[in-house]
């Protein structure tokens, strides 16, 4: 069964926001400023992550978190968003600024910044086709901190309710089903979402497969691979041809990484 061979990253279309053509002069001005702030923030974040990685203790990590100039960046991003939104209602430049704020919240484990960014995005930009990428980002990688799951689910429900674009609806259905399906308490909601995917996208292309295939795979995962369940065993060969079982490692903490060379 050779299915589902896509990379999550390929679905992240959000950076396209930056390239959005700005029709009004004031919005163009805001776009320029945003690009400058984003670049500075990206550079600062990169070196900061390097420092944090070398931190020896939780105290050192906490000091680094406290030292990040978050208020300055938050102020700049909010000013840009306000300027762009004043020039063009629902401005993609404003959306991009709120996205940066949400990402900064993820980076610094700052729930307040995360929530502020998310609230603006789902409050003012829910009709944007770019919400498809944001829906994925909410459950994917660095955009999905463990403390953000409830907020992310609430945001995805709002995106689902306000979506005007079939792509956005599909993405929100898929991501919300996977997110709430991680917990026993979310099974019922997840299965309803999968039924909607079957009904609306059953035979059409849905993230590189049919909606029905996606729903079958997701249901299997929700029923068998939730936190708290015993992992299914396997016996497979390693790269040197030695066969081994997952259960050979009982008694040890194991991190399984599903990966592949691109």
């Amino acid at each position: 069964m050779k299915l589902r061979r896509f990379s999550w990253a390929a679905l992240l279309s959000v950076p396209a926001l930056l390239a959005a053509v700005a029709p009004a002069a004031d919005e163009r001005e805001a776009a320029k400023r945003l690009q400058e702030v984003s670049q500075r923030l990206a550079e600062e974040s990169r070196s900061w992550i390097e420092f944090r990685h070398q931190a020896k203790s939780d105290e050192e990590r906490a000091e680094l978190v406290a030292a990040f100039p978050r208020d300055e960046y938050a102020r700049e991003l909010e000013a840009v968003a306000a300027e762009a939104a004043a020039a063009v209602k629902g401005s993609e430049v404003a959306a991009r600024a709120w996205l940066e704020l949400y990402r900064l919240g993820c980076l610094l484990d700052d729930r307040e910044l995360y929530q502020r960014g998310v609230d603006h995005l789902v409050g003012e930009h829910v009709a944007s086709p770019e919400m498809a990428g944001f829906a994925l980002e909410l459950v994917y990688g660095a955009g999905a901190p463990p403390w953000g799951k409830e907020s992310a689910a609430a945001a995805l429900r709002k995106i689902l309710a306000g979506a005007q674009d079939k792509n956005v609806r599909g993405s929100a259905l898929a991501q919300l089903s996977l997110l709430v399906g991680q917990e026993e308490a979310g099974r019922e909601e997840a299965n309803k979402l999968l039924d909607a995917i079957r009904a609306e996208f059953g035979t059409s292309d849905f993230i590189g497969m049919s909606g029905a295939q996606f729903a079958d795979g997701a249901r299997y995962e929700i029923e068998t691979l939730r936190a708290g369940m015993t992992a299914p065993d396997f016996e497979l060969a390693d790269q040197d041809g030695q066969r081994f079982k997952l259960s050979d490692y009982r008694g040890r903490v194991v991190l399984l990484d599903f990966w592949g060379f691109v």
Binding site: W8, A231, V254, L255, L256, D257, F258
Partner: peptide, 14 residues
């Protein structure tokens, strides 16, 4: 569902 994806298991295989 895609790559990468990670599972963390404890000593009992949970």
């Amino acid at each position: 569902r895609g790559f990468p994806q990670f599972y963390l298991l404890d000593g009992r295989g949970v």
